[in-house]
Simulated assay, not measured.
Amino acid sequence: MRLAAFRLIGEPEGTRRVGLVVGDGPNWWLHPFPAGTDLVELLAADRDEREAAADGAARGDGLRPEQVRLLPPVYPVAMRDFLTFEAHVDGMERGHGNPGPPPEWYAAPSFLFMAPHAVTGPFDDVAIAPDTERFDYELEMAAIICRDVRNVDPAKARSAIGGYCVMNDWSARDVQGREMKLKLGPSKGKDFATTIGPWVVTADELDSCRDGDGFLDLKMTVRVNGEVTGSDRSGHMGWSFEHLVSYASRASWVKRGEVLASGTCGSGSLAEAWGRNGSLTPRPLRAGDVVEMTIERLGTIRNRVVAGTETVPEIVPARRRIREEV
Rank of each mutant, 00 (worst) to 15 (best):
E272M: 09
G266S: 11
G62L: 05
T84P: 01
E104D: 13
T132E: 04
S246E: 07
P116I: 05
N168K: 06
D38A: 03
P109C: 10
P186N: 02
I322G: 00
Y106Q: 10
P101C: 08
G212S: 12
P26M: 13
G214H: 02
I315V: 14
G36D: 05
D124G: 07
D174Y: 02
R321E: 12
E51I: 12
E324V: 13
L206Y: 10
R256Y: 03
I196F: 03
E310W: 05
I301S: 05
P109E: 10
T300F: 09
D46M: 03
E296Q: 15
G275T: 03
A52S: 06
K188C: 01
A142E: 03
S159W: 01
P154Q: 12
G263H: 13
E272F: 01
I161N: 07
D211M: 02
A58N: 07
G19I: 12
E51Q: 15
P284H: 02
W28C: 08
P102V: 06
G163T: 03
P317S: 00
M167E: 13
R233C: 10
H243V: 00
G299S: 10
R16C: 01
A57D: 07
E138W: 03
P76E: 02
L139T: 14
A203C: 06
V200N: 04
V68I: 15
V175N: 05
R250Y: 06
I322T: 14
S240Y: 04
T194A: 14
G288Q: 11
R319E: 15
L43C: 09
R250L: 11
E93C: 15
A251W: 06
V316N: 09
D61E: 13
G226R: 11
V254A: 03
H88W: 10
R178M: 11
V201H: 06
